[in-house]
Each structure stands twice: as structure tokens, then as C-alpha cells.
Write a protein that binds this DNA or RNA. Structure first.
Lengths: 347, 347
DNA sequence: TTTTAGCACTCAAAGAGGTAGAGTGCTAAC
DNA sequence: GTTAGCACTCTACCTCTTTGAGTGCTAAAA
């Protein structure tokens, strides 16, 4: 069904979508003709509308109402019409100043970016922490904290720091610890996280056992913790601007509001939501989302990449009736900023 | 106005509150008489109700409706009636198992506890990260990360770890760094955070300048970062179970829902909310909350104290029509658990 | 003096028309 | 192919009425 769409139809469709995004109301032929000065009449528009509806781009809530765009309509809009009008968001200065106040720290950057993005687009923003797997370990250190407690610190080449307290059964002498540190550093520093597989660890374990003489459990334990910290699947999710959803007229009825807010309350759900997308920039419109509760929502997600390797995602959740041009460019920009911020704080 | 309240009035008030907590509807004399078998009639109840209303414990939405408890009524209930029926929450086992899976890390414990509490009471839970000021520094370390980047690590006696990346203008040699580490450790280790005041820092600065020969800016910078990490006022807030609010019938109208959800979206607001309370266990009912948007809500907050010093807060936000006995004991228990968890992971 | 039954009264919530207005689809003329 | 005209449709909103739970008051009973 590769029906050609006339330029006039395109014009009408675009106008309807823009108008609907603005007003959140069904758009009628008369209103449309009044607001946009087309060189054809409401009656013609009606005909075009009927065609567009048949093609699946528009829907009619009931017989005597105007039309609203369908998911397919938005999809067409995003794919074909948006590009020319991607605008750089205005005056980042204000946001950036606020951000730089809170200085370094991945956590601060992440939450700051989520906040900035949500303020910018006036929808809910979501940012996922960068995954480790593609970055290199630049440093790994075990610090003694107390008699049977060590602090494991892993720093990646992209400048991310991760630490974890490790509880040991048995005390380690200073010398033992030094040896341990030396071997671990030698073996792990400079290595890409994704190459630390079972076989490699097996090998490492052998070496440790051979060269040091502690109980095997300690080594096992350490290994466990190291892999834990490295492939922690459970990347943290930063959410901000939840309350913007409340401003959207389509969520004025409690039922749909509940649905979407419940999703936002479940970290795992969100994680799956953004992790599932792999492309550089993806737009999921309405029912294109697998999640049943998100069928009235759209999701715009971009991937950010850190210099030293490691990627994460940043996105926006809003109603299908979303200001796509603005959102897409803002999400894009934010992804870029995140890379820059972390890389610069990591130089 | 220290009017004595008869035991019968107390009985009626208690019944009304319990019934209202259960049903969320205004309670009438007839219903009350039917459900609770008092040895007096609806008419008598009506008289008592009229009295209780005059005393300020009850309110009437309109002339021909039943009564609902006022803030004062709940206050009385909480202060006088609750104690005898504080019950230990059932079967923590399930929650605890889930918690211990995620092992160590303050962050995990905090968010895990918030989650557990909210699941337990079926209201929104809030946990604030432990403040540093009353704990001692047990270790402070500067690790080189790259040529002009240091990782500052501070470990407190309660086992909390905090790190921050510091950007320097100028390179430090290994030796300089070692000296720096030595001096800082000597001066700061074992010291209570709250005693690190301006005067002390002045003194430290002098020493550093005298004994080392780097540019003053570096020293200033370091100092800045250290104080930053130590008294970071901006303690993190963990929130969980936001969506439970949606289940409450009193928030079935969009307006009040918006109000409260907007508050929950603002970290600073929440911080102030829990930080403002200093008592061991505090219950703020309705208008007792300063925040205008929280006047339909109650807040139950407890303080937890870590072994090595350092305190934080844990609480529950729900409608004034809250199951106080259950909530109070759960919050209390959670505070206790947090101390235990962090202390045990910090031994 | 306290408690209770009886009864008239009140008020919100829910349902039943009725109207207005925006919008459509169809037809016939341009 | 485009447009004006018109009958038709449907929701949103108003008003009116009914219903029922609940009250307060009064007078009788305990």
C-alpha cells in the first residue's frame, strides 16, 4: 500500500498535526482554513481529510468531531516533515550555568542533565547512566578501610568512578594487599571491560592462587565483586520533570494518568524502555511502544557516547501529541552535552 | 480550652476515625451504630458527634453528610489512641531477602529501604542520605587518575564512602602527591566533620603552604573540594512508591493530585520537608505541614542514627486519612533497619 | 437527667430531557 | 477538480427532578 501522497495532502496533514499539537483538540476543516491561509476551501480540506483518514493518517473521535492525527500520522510527520524545522533550542546559557555550579561527579551530571532537558522541553526527561562495557579500565585500586573491609575503586578511561565496599572473612596484611593490588592492576588496567570474560577471570584466578597464598574464598569473593561492579546491568535511571505530565490535557483523566505514572515509578520498566533502543536517535510513537501503558505516549531517545568508550541513553517521555521538532533537537543536543561534560571532567 | 473528653466520646471519635480511614467516606451515626456494637443508639452518637464537632475534632462537609475527622481529630487519635495498637509489621522476611541481594553500597541500601518501606505501608516513602557532620573521618585519600586529575576519597567511621574528581590546573609529581596525602591524612583522619571549621581550615592551609611548595591556588582548590564533599548540604533524597498516591480516593481529583505530585518532583522541597524535623519520630498532620500543597497530607518521619555518628531521616507521605498505627511502627522499624544495615556493612 | 424514637428538613449525587454549536458528508453548481 | 449550501450528527453543557443518606430537633421513655 505505497499510496503516493500529494503535496496538498501533505500540507493539510502537517497543518492538522501542528494545530492539534498546539490545541490538543480535534481539528476541523473550518478552523484549519481560517488559521492557515490555504488557497483552497474548507470543503476541499474535508475531502482531503476523508482521504487521509482512509489512508490511516487521521482519526475521528466521533462522527461530528474534527480529526486527530493517528500514530501513523505522527510517524509520517516525524519521518518526512520534521527535518527542515529542527531548531536549536534557545538560550542554553541559563541551564548550563546552573549545571556547572554543581561541578563534577557523574551522578550530578546525570541528574543535572535530566533536569535541564526536562525544563527545556517541558516534558519528563530520562537519562541512563553510562554502561561500562565498552570503556577501558584506567585504574583499579583496593584501599583498606578497616580491618576486614576494603574499598574497591574502579576508574574507567572515560573518567567514571565506581566504588564498592568489600567485606572479607579474613584479615589481609598490608603486604598481601599490596601484592594483590599490583597483580590486579597489571592484569586489568588498560583492558576493555567487555573483554573480561569468564575465561579471562579463570586465568586471573589461577595467577592469584599461584602467586599469593590466601584462601581461595577471598579470591573468589574479590572476583565476584569486580565482575559485579563492572557489568552491573542495573544502570541507574535518572528521571526529572515527572510533573510536566500533569500539565498535558490528554492526561486530565485519572485513569490514563495513573497508567503512565505507575510506569515512571518502576525503575526496571524504565530501564528496559530505554535500553531496548539501540539506534542513535529513536522516536517511538504511541502504540509503537511495546508497553501497553505507554500507548498514549511517545518516547524520544538518543544515545550518548563517551570519549573513552561507554554509552548511555537520554530521552523524553511525553504525550503522542508532542512537539517533536523541539524535543528531537533538544534530546540530540543533550546527548552531545553529556558526552562533552563527562569527557571534559574526565580529562 | 482543656475540655475533658468523656470515654464515650473517645470511643465514638476513635470509631469514626477508624471507619473513615477504612472507607474514605464521611461517617454517619447510623452506619457507625450498625458496624460497631455500642451500647447506645444512633441518636446518642449524633449528640456526641455534635459535641465533638464543636470541640474541633470533627468536620461536616455539608449539613446532610456524615462527619469526617479534622486535623485536630487525627492529632488526638495519634497522640492518645495509637500507642496501644502499634503493631509490628508482618513478615519483613520477604523484603529483607530482596534487599540483601543487592548487597552493599549506601546508595543501594537507601533506595532499597525506600522501596521496602513504601511496599510495606502502601504509601510513598522518602529516605534522606545520612549527613556527615557528626561522623568522623576515618580515611582520606587522593588518588591520581590522570595527569591533571585526582580522585578525592573520604571514608567516614560509619563506613560511608564519598568520592569526587578534582581537576587541577597544574600537574603534581608523585612525591608532591604523597606529601599532600600524608599531611591531609594526619590532620584530618579521626576528626569529627563538624569540627572542620573555617579556623581549622585556615590553619591547615598555613601548614600546607609552609611545608609544601605548590601554588596557593591548588591548595585553595583542594580545600574547596574537601569542604564541598564534607558539608554537602544537598543530601540526596530517595523516593519510592510515588504511584501509591494515585490509589488514594482523596486524590481522585486532578487538582489536588497535581499539587502533591509537584512537590514530590522537587528535591529541594522534599529535603526541606524532612530536614526541618528534628525529633526522633514526628507526625505532621495536614495543615501542621508548613507547605501549602501538603495540607491534605500527613508526614511521618523518623531519624536514624549510624553507629559511627551521622544521621538521616526516613518517612512516609500519605493522605491525612492515613493508617497511622501501621505507618508509625513501620517507619520506626525502617529507621532501625537502616542503622543496622549500614553499620553491619561498615564493620 | 440522660437516652432514644420519630419526623421534618437538607443537600449532594445521579439521571433525564433539552439546547447550542462545531463539524461532517453529500449534492449540485461553478 | 473545486466549492457553496444544507441536512444531519453528536458532544458538551445546562437545568430540572429524584433519590437517599444523614442531620437536628422535639417529645417521650428510662
Amino acid at each position: 500500500m505505497v499510496e503516493e501522497i500529494s503535496t496538498r495532502k501533505e500540507k493539510v496533514l502537517k497543518a492538522i498535526i501542528q494545530e492539534h499539537i498546539l490545541t490538543a483538540e480535534p481539528v476541523g476543516s473550518r478552523t484549519l482554513a481560517r488559521k492557515y491561509d490555504f488557497d483552497f476551501s474548507p470543503a476541499t480540506i474535508r475531502n482531503e481529510m476523508a482521504d487521509l483518514e482512509e489512508m490511516g493518517f487521521l482519526e475521528q473521535p466521533h462522527t461530528s468531531a474534527g480529526r486527530i492525527p493517528s500514530d501513523l500520522g505522527y510517524r509520517f510527520y516525524v519521518d518526512r516533515l520534521v527535518e527542515e524545522e529542527l531548531e536549536k533550542p534557545v538560550s542554553l546559557k541559563h541551564y548550563l550555568k546552573e549545571l556547572s555550579r554543581q561541578k563534577s561527579g557523574v551522578e550530578d551530571i546525570m541528574s543535572g542533565m535530566a533536569r535541564m532537558l526536562s525544563r527545556m522541553v517541558q516534558y519528563t526527561a530520562i537519562v541512563s547512566e553510562p554502561g561500562f562495557s565498552e570503556s577501558k579500565i584506567s585504574r583499579l585500586e583496593l584501599l583498606p578501610v578497616s580491618s576486614r573491609k576494603l574499598l574497591l575503586i574502579v576508574i574507567t578511561s572515560s573518567g567514571l568512578v565506581n566504588d564498592k565496599i568489600i567485606q572479607l572473612e579474613k584479615k589481609l596484611t598490608e603486604e598481601e594487599l599490596e601484592n594483590l593490588n599490583r597483580i590486579l592492576s597489571r592484569r586489568l588496567a588498560g583492558r576493555k571491560v567487555s573483554t573480561i570474560t569468564g575465561a579471562f577471570l579463570q586465568d586471573l584466578e589461577e595467577e592469584l592462587k599461584r602467586r599469593l597464598n590466601y584462601a581461595a574464598e577471598i579470591i573468589k569473593r574479590l572476583e565476584q565483586e569486580i565482575t559485579d561492579i563492572l557489568d552491573k546491568q542495573e544502570m541507574k535511571i535518572y528521571l526529572d520533570g515527572t510533573s510536566y505530565i500533569l500539565e498535558q490535557p490528554e492526561f486530565n483523566d485519572i485513569q490514563s494518568l495513573k497508567k503512565i505514572l505507575k510506569v515512571l515509578d518502576r525503575q526496571e520498566e524504565l530501564r528496559r524502555l530505554v535500553a531496548g533502543l539501540e539506534d542513535e536517535l529513536e522516536v517511538k510513537i504511541g502504540a509503537e511502544n511495546k508497553l501497553q501503558e505507554m500507548q498514549n505516549c511517545s518516547l524520544v531517545v538518543a544515545t550518548y557516547r563517551l570519549e573513552g568508550g561507554g554509552t548511555g541513553r537520554v530521552g523524553v517521555i511525553g504525550p503522542t501529541r508532542m512537539e517533536y521538532p523541539r524535543v528531537i533537537s533538544s534530546v540530540d543536543l543533550t546527548a552531545e552535552l553529556i558526552s562533552k561534560f563527562i569527557s571534559s571532567s574526565g580529562r
